[in-house]
Design a protein around this nucleic acid. Structure first.
Lengths: 230, 230
DNA sequence: TATAAAAGTTAGGCACATCTAACAAATTGT
DNA sequence: ACAATTTGTTAGATGTGCCTAACTTTTATA
C-alpha cells in the first residue's frame, strides 16, 4: 500500500516523463520543482520508491519508472480523470474547478468505487479537459486529436480539450463560449496572422488567435475537408 | 484547517458523546478504545485540540466538545452520510459496503463539492443506514423513527435503518429480504417471546425475533394503527 | 477508609515527510 | 581542459501521529 505522498511522486514522474516530454527519465531537481518540494526531500523519497521496486535510480543518475511504478501511476491518472469527469458532468463543476478536487479524490482507496464510477459515467474515454482516461487495464484510448490551428477552412470540428490549463486561458475560452464537446465550423482563416473565424449554433462569429488555436485540441468531424489524415 | 486525524478525533467525540449515550463528556481511555489507539496518543491530540479551542479538557478531567468543535464534527458526519447515500443510491454499493469508503471520502475538502453532491442526491434526510443527515447549517432532520419492536399488530411500517451495523446483522437482514425503504405489515406478534411475523410484497411470511426487531428502525405509515404517537 | 483497580499522564522514542546547510559530482562554456 | 554553474547528495533538524513503559490521580470495593 502506497502513502498519499508516494502516489503523488509516481504520478508526477509519469507526467514529467510520459506526458510532458515523452522522454523516459527525469532528474531530481526537475521532480522537486514539479512537486514544489526541495531536491533533498525528493532524494529521500527516491530511496523509498527504489526499495519498493517502483523506480530505478542510481547515484547521480536519472530516474526511470519501472513497469510496476508506471502501472500504479496510470491507475492514479485513471482515478483523477474519472473523478474530473464526474465533477464536470454530474455535479456541474466548471471546467477549471475540477482539478483541485480530483487531486484529493484520486487517492481514495477502493477498486470497487472506481469500477462503479466508471460504469456510472458510461465508461468515458476523455475527461473534461479532453485528456484520455486509461481503462481498467491501463490502456489509453487513441484519439485523432490535433490543435485547432491545424484545421483548414471549411473544417467542422469538435472541441476535445486544451493543452494549457491556466485559469487565464480557461476563462478566455469560457468568455468566448468555447466549451468541451462544442462543435464549430472553421469559416475563414486570415492569411496574415492565421486568426480563425469560427461559427457555432450558439455563436455565429468567434475570432480565435493562432496562439489560442494552438492550445485548443479538436478532432475533425468530416473526412473530406482536406485537413489531413484522421 | 484540520488534519485528517484531527477530524477523526472530533467525529469520534461526537459519536461517543452526542449519539452513543447522549452524555456531554467522554474519557481518554474511552476515546482511545473507540479510535483503536493508545490513551497516551489520545492525550497528545487532546492538547492540540484544546489549543485550537475545539474541546475543553483539564488534567484528569472529562473531555467536552466546544461549540466550534461540535460544528466541525457535524460537518464531517454530514459529509460521511451524503457520501454513503451517493454510494448506495448512485453506484449500487451494498448497504454494508458504504461505510469504509465514506470514511475516506468524508475528509475531502471542498465546500462546493458537498453542496453539489447534496443537490445531486436531492437533499436526502437519511443515509442508507437510516441515520439522519445534517443540513448545511448543521440541523438534524427530525424523524418519527422507532424500533420495529414498538410496533403493534396491524402496523404498516417502512424500514428506515438499523441501530447495529455489524456485518453479521446486516447479512441477517439481507438473508431475510429486509432492506432499506422496504415496507412491511406486522401480521402477528407471538405473545410469549414477541417474535414478529411480517409480510411484504416480495415475501409473505418473515419471522423476526425481538432481539432483531429492537435493532430495526422503522416509521409507521398509518396514523390509526394504535402503535403510538407519530 | 485504606487499598486495589481503573483511568489518565508523562517521558522518551520511532517513522514519515519535510526542511536547511554544506558538500560532491557532472555538465557547460570559454 | 579546467573553472564556473548546475545538479544531485548527505547530515542533521523539525512537526505530526503514533508507540511503550513508568508514573500519578481518581474511583470503586473489601
Amino acid at each position: 500500500m502506497l502513502s498519499y505522498t508516494e502516489e503523488n511522486y509516481l504520478k508526477a514522474l509519469y507526467h514529467l516523463m510520459v506526458e510532458k516530454d515523452t522522454k523516459p527519465e527525469a532528474g531530481t531537481n526537475e521532480l522537486a520543482a514539479y512537486l514544489g518540494v526541495k531536491p533533498a526531500t525528493v532524494n529521500d523519497m527516491l530511496k523509498k520508491l527504489k526499495d519498493k521496486k517502483l523506480i530505478t535510480h542510481e547515484r547521480y543518475g536519472k530516474i526511470r519508472l519501472q513497469t510496476s511504478g508506471r502501472k500504479l501511476a496510470i491507475e492514479i491518472v485513471r482515478k483523477h480523470r474519472l473523478w474530473e469527469t464526474f465533477l464536470y458532468e454530474k455535479l456541474d463543476f466548471n471546467w477549471h474547478e475540477v482539478h483541485d478536487v480530483a487531486e484529493q479524490l484520486e487517492h481514495i482507496q477502493s477498486p470497487k468505487l472506481i469500477e462503479k464510477l466508471d460504469a456510472f459515467l458510461n465508461y468515458p474515454s476523455f475527461d473534461p479537459h479532453g485528456d484520455p482516461i486509461p481503462d481498467k487495464d491501463g490502456n489509453m484510448p487513441k484519439s485523432q486529436r490535433r490543435p485547432l490551428s491545424k484545421s483548414v477552412e471549411g473544417c467542422r470540428v469538435v472541441i476535445l480539450g486544451v493543452s494549457e490549463h491556466s485559469e487565464l486561458f480557461l476563462n478566455y475560452l469560457s468568455d468566448n463560449h468555447i466549451g468541451l464537446n462544442d462543435k464549430f465550423t472553421v469559416e475563414r482563416i486570415t492569411p496574415f496572422d492565421e486568426t480563425m473565424r469560427l461559427s457555432s449554433k450558439k455563436n455565429p462569429d468567434i475570432l480565435v488567435s493562432n496562439k489560442a488555436a494552438n492550445k485548443i485540441q479538436v478532432t475533425c468531424l468530416r473526412s473530406d475537408c482536406g485537413c489531413g489524415k484522421m
